[in-house]
Design a protein around this nucleic acid. Sequence first.
RNA 1: GUCCCCAUCGUCUAGCCCGGUUAGGACACCACCCUUUCACGGUGAGAACCGGGGUUCGAAUCCCCGUGGGGACGCCA
Length: 459
Amino acid sequence: MAQVRVRFAPSPTGFFHIGSARTALFNWLYARHTGGVFVLRIEDTDKERNSEQFLNVIYDSLSWLGLNWDEGPRVGGQFGPYRQSERADVYREYLARLAAAGRTYEKDGATYFKLLGERAEVYDEHRKKTVTKVRNAPAVIDDRIRGRVERTEDEDFVIVRSDGNPVFHFVNVVDDITMAITHVIRGEDHLSNTSKHVELFKAFGAPVPAYAHIPLILKQNGPGKMSKRDQGALIEEYQRRGFLPEALVNFLSLLGWNPGDDREKMPIAEIIRLFDLPGVNQSNARFDEKKLAHMNMAYLLELSPDRFVEKARGYLAQLPAGASRWQSADDAYFREVMLLCQPKLKGLEELPAYTGYFFSEDFPLDAKVREKVMGKGDPRARLAELIDLTGTADFSTDAAIEEALKALAARSGAGFGDYQAVARLAVSGTNVGPSITGLFRVLGRERVRKRLSALAATL
RNA sequence: GUCCCCAUCGUCUAGCCCGGUUAGGACACCACCCUUUCACGGUGAGAACCGGGGUUCGAAUCCCCGUGGGGACGCCA
């Protein structure tokens, strides 16, 4: 069996859709699984809609996801160039072949591909116009996911626009032929187009590749497939929100595919080992951001300290406002704060709100929490005792702080929880966060006492 | 309207090909446990074979018809 060659062929429209990401991923996985070649081809024949800078959106998104390409722009390859805008010579040659075989004709300045068979004029109710139907044999699509699919192409179609630019169907097929693509893995929305492509392959006398039409990703609420305007549809959004690419890739791999057992969270090497076309589902999948968030948390939790700190720093640095707040902190302290919070976070997005009070005295006091804590027991007395205790207590370790607090609770007869709640409110302004002992230790005696006193002063 | 694809818990899915399961897992939700908060984690609960016909001793599984969902029908890709 010859080496597998697959391709991902996006258009530089300025967006990198999550559905495109999954198509790219499945192609990449199949190439890696089979030891094949993953080709990146840029389909930029529509000069109206494409632009140079949009190319970077594609490169950046693929790179961020870790989907490296073996052939394509920036890395080259023996079947280049890999941008359709640079392949005019190839298309001219293939168009000439079609013309020589009598399979093209001009109409309204455009070039049409001519189907073989009897013709008849028919009025199309839906399109409200008369069209020429061709009595044609069905095209057979050998689909690795759906099985054998037949569809009859019964109308000639445009392959070169009147402005001289070739159309998708034509260049797509020509490139798949000239780039020796063996498997076309793409979204199901292309299944109906495939009969056009099969007709072209046949007209060129070229072997038809194996197809694999993968199910679509549906929007989480409401009807229809996910579009670029839907919440969570764009890869750059996940990048910006600090999602871990390995988590997103793992999640995406499970949208329409499964390893055949209960496993979900898997290292990419394992996904590559298990991935195969027959394991891909046939039905569309609804996108579920909650499950993605859970996957992201699981990956975040197991990040090594160094990696977590690096990710946290990266995330905070790209925030639009207030980046200076964290940047002014010294490395050791920053690291200590981040590692204290790592086991508690669901996502890097929580970082600003979750760690703000470590880096500034100006942090919000949650009014509801304050009301709740202050309305219970004798917070005034607890605060006074805490201020007294923290003046002399050993702050060197969590254990020492815990011991001191427990001793205080035992002396006074109030519960540990009462001290904990009041102290937490004073130092962090809320009722969620790391352990109170960790909070004390990392914040340090001086700031803890200052904040306790500040809260006491408001009573 | 025409053509194509699809159909298991709210969601992602295993099981289907090669009929016999208390129809399994995960996310979400709820309860309990753990616990110095909040999480994590643990235990448990509720929750599905779209409908109708066939074939068969027996159908989630095979066949047909409905219905529902999705896609395509551009000088977009």
